[in-house]
C-alpha cells in the first residue's frame, strides 16, 4: 500500500471517529409507571447499571435500541460506544449486573415499554403510542 493511500485510510478512520450525531433522543416509560420526568443524572445511573430501581421503587427493565446505542451514549454521557462496551464487560464479568435488554429498533422498544410498566428505553422520536410517556429529551 502506498503512503498516500495509507494516510487516506487513517484519515478516513479518524473522521469516522468524529461523526456528528444530530438526532434527538427521548427516554420513554410506560404511562402507568408513575414517573413523569427523569433527570439526566438519574438516566445515567439507570443506563450504566448503577441503580436498578426506578424512582418509584419498582425494578427497572432497561431497554436499548441496538442501532441507536452509539449516538445515545455519546449524547447522554459524552462517551464513545467502545468505552460503554468495555464498561459493561467490567460489570458483567464481575457479577455486578447484567447488560440491558437490546431490541433491534425503536418500534420494538416502544412496544416493550407500552406493555411493561417497569421498562425504560431510549428512542429517536416521540412515540405515537399513548401508552409510552416521554420523561427526558436529549436534544442536539
Amino acid at each position: 500500500m502506498r503512503i498516500p493511500a495509507l494516510a487516506s485510510l487513517v484519515f478516513a478512520l479518524l473522521l469516522s471517529a468524529h461523526e456528528v450525531v444530530a438526532e434527538e433522543f427521548v427516554l420513554i416509560v410506560n404511562r402507568d409507571s408513575g414517573i413523569s420526568n427523569l433527570s439526566r443524572e438519574q438516566a445515567s445511573h439507570l443506563f450504566l447499571g448503577r441503580v436498578k430501581m426506578l424512582p418509584t421503587g419498582a425494578r427497572a427493565n432497561v431497554v436499548e435500541v441496538e442501532p441507536l446505542r452509539a449516538g445515545f451514549y455519546r449524547r447522554l454521557l459524552g462517551r464513545e460506544i467502545a468505552e460503554i462496551n468495555a464498561y459493561w464487560a467490567r460489570l458483567q464479568f464481575s457479577g455486578r449486573t447484567q447488560p440491558p435488554l437490546r431490541v433491534p429498533d425503536s418500534a420494538a422498544a416502544v412496544a416493550r415499554v407500552a406493555e411493561d410498566p417497569q421498562a425504560i428505553a431510549f428512542v429517536d422520536a416521540v412515540p405515537e403510542d399513548a401508552r409510552a410517556r416521554v420523561v427526558l429529551r436529549l436534544g442536539p
Binding site: 462496551n85 468495555a86 464498561y87 464487560a89 467490567r90 460489570l91 464479568f93 464481575s94 457479577g95 455486578r96
Partner: peptide, 23 residues
C-alpha cells in the same frame, strides 16, 4: 453475595482476567 468471590482490589472490574475491560 455468597459463594466463590474475588477480592475487590482491581480498579477495572474486580478481575484481572477480562482483557476487553482494560485499556
Amino acid at each position: 453475595r455468597a459463594g466463590r468471590l474475588v477480592t475487590d482490589i482491581y480498579l477495572d472490574g474486580d478481575s484481572r482476567h477480562v482483557g476487553y475491560a482494560y485499556t
